[in-house]
Computed example of a mutant assay.
Amino acid sequence: MYQDKTLICKDCGNEFVFTAGEQEFYAEKGFENEPQRCKDCRSIRKNSMKTQKEMFTANCAACGAEARVPFRPKEDRPVYCSDCFAKMKDE
């Protein structure tokens, strides 16, 4: 049915294999285009698109420890450290 294909990466120019299993996966997902980048270049591209979240520091409302959170804490809402948040979630 499917056979391995050798493709050329459009970023680095190196050859890479588009395996029969990958082709089957692409077909199951309805993807019509073959990959244009090798695995390494896809990873580099994916990681470069991620943005670093700004982290904020607050004191945990339960234990008083310093907590780093990805949102700006508000004075009228409690903020919990990871441990206290997990304990509250389990209860």
Rank of each mutant, 00 (worst) to 15 (best):
M1I: 04
D83F: 11
C41P: 01
F18I: 03
F25P: 00
K89V: 02
T6L: 10
C81W: 07
D4A: 10
D90R: 12
M88L: 15
A20V: 03
S43Q: 13
Q52R: 13
G30C: 06
K74F: 07
L7R: 12
A86F: 09
T6G: 06
A20R: 09
Q52N: 06
F25Q: 11
M49R: 15
N47V: 01
N33R: 15
N33L: 13
F18C: 13
Q23C: 04
T19W: 08
I44T: 06
F31H: 06
F16E: 04
I44Q: 13
N47R: 15
K29I: 00
K5W: 06
K87P: 01
C81N: 07
F56E: 06
E15L: 10
A20D: 05
N14S: 12
P73S: 08
V79Q: 11
K53S: 10
C12D: 01
C60F: 02
P70A: 04
E34D: 13
M88N: 07
I44F: 09
D40G: 03
P35A: 12
K50R: 10
E22V: 01
A67Y: 09
K89Q: 10
A58R: 14
S82M: 12
I8S: 12
E24F: 09
E75G: 04
A62S: 13
K74V: 02
E75A: 11
S48A: 14
R72D: 05
M1E: 14
K74H: 10
K50N: 02
E66T: 13
K29G: 01
G13I: 00
